[in-house]
Computed example of a mutant assay.
Amino acid sequence: MFLHTIGEEEATGRVAEIYAAQRQQLGFVMEAMKSFTTRPDLLPAYTDFSDKVRAGFSLGQRAWRLITLIAARQVPSSYCSHVYRKQLVADLGSPAAVLAVQRDFRSAGLPAREVEMLAYAEKVATDASKVTLADIDQLRAAGFTDQEIGDIALCAAFRCFVGRFFDAVGAGVEPAFLAEDESFRSAMTVGRAV
């Protein structure tokens, strides 16, 4: 981490509660969480917002993780790419399947609906000013509701925000999120070296 953040031993109040909850869930406190304590008043706002966005996400956790993978490649955010690695392997069945989606989701054997979702997410993460009504109409034609389309945009844009913030303050990928296989780890490193 490039900046001073609140360590677990010095955390108090709501920051200490958030740290304790994450430690109980993961066994450690992520640098991503600590990074928000350069402004301790924002950590509760961030966790509340993040929890609400994810809890109400209309497309399910597989879609959340796929969108994250594609947006992380565009940011580029190695942190976000690695953090979701293990869950993506479980979702897609193998590291090779994850890398196929990361390389070119259009030819990775995903269902057509997911390809449409990821094409939109990629456009949002790359340059959202290029999104047009035709893109939205294409998603609607693929069966997405406006709430689902909004959720795709929210997930991709949220990933751009947090991925860039984590890199800007020097949050490093925790060892627990890194694949043992060196070639897979290297391929999932889409931005800053880990």
Rank of each mutant, 00 (worst) to 15 (best):
residue 148 E to K: 08
residue 159 R to M: 15
residue 157 A to I: 10
residue 43 L to H: 01
residue 125 A to C: 02
residue 13 G to Y: 03
residue 36 F to L: 14
residue 151 D to Q: 07
residue 2 F to S: 11
residue 101 V to A: 00
residue 83 V to R: 12
residue 2 F to T: 10
residue 172 G to E: 14
residue 95 P to H: 05
residue 155 C to Q: 14
residue 9 E to C: 04
residue 69 L to S: 01
residue 180 E to L: 15
residue 142 A to M: 07
residue 119 A to C: 08
residue 116 E to D: 09
residue 29 V to F: 09
residue 2 F to M: 10
residue 15 V to R: 00
residue 7 G to C: 15
residue 44 P to N: 01
residue 66 L to G: 07
residue 176 A to L: 05
residue 107 S to P: 10
residue 68 T to E: 07
residue 40 P to Y: 02
residue 137 D to E: 14
residue 15 V to L: 00
residue 193 A to P: 12
residue 126 T to S: 15
residue 40 P to L: 06
residue 157 A to W: 11
residue 48 D to V: 08
residue 86 K to M: 07
residue 66 L to T: 03
residue 142 A to I: 10
residue 38 T to W: 07
residue 194 V to C: 08
residue 96 A to S: 11
residue 121 A to K: 02
residue 26 L to E: 06
residue 118 L to R: 05
residue 45 A to M: 05
residue 77 S to T: 01
residue 58 S to P: 02
residue 179 A to C: 14
residue 64 W to K: 13
residue 133 L to C: 12
residue 173 V to I: 12
residue 18 I to Y: 01
residue 155 C to N: 13
residue 180 E to R: 15
residue 162 V to C: 07
residue 21 A to E: 09
residue 82 H to C: 04
residue 60 G to Y: 09
residue 136 I to R: 10
residue 126 T to A: 14
residue 76 P to Q: 04
residue 173 V to Q: 03
residue 38 T to C: 07
residue 69 L to W: 00
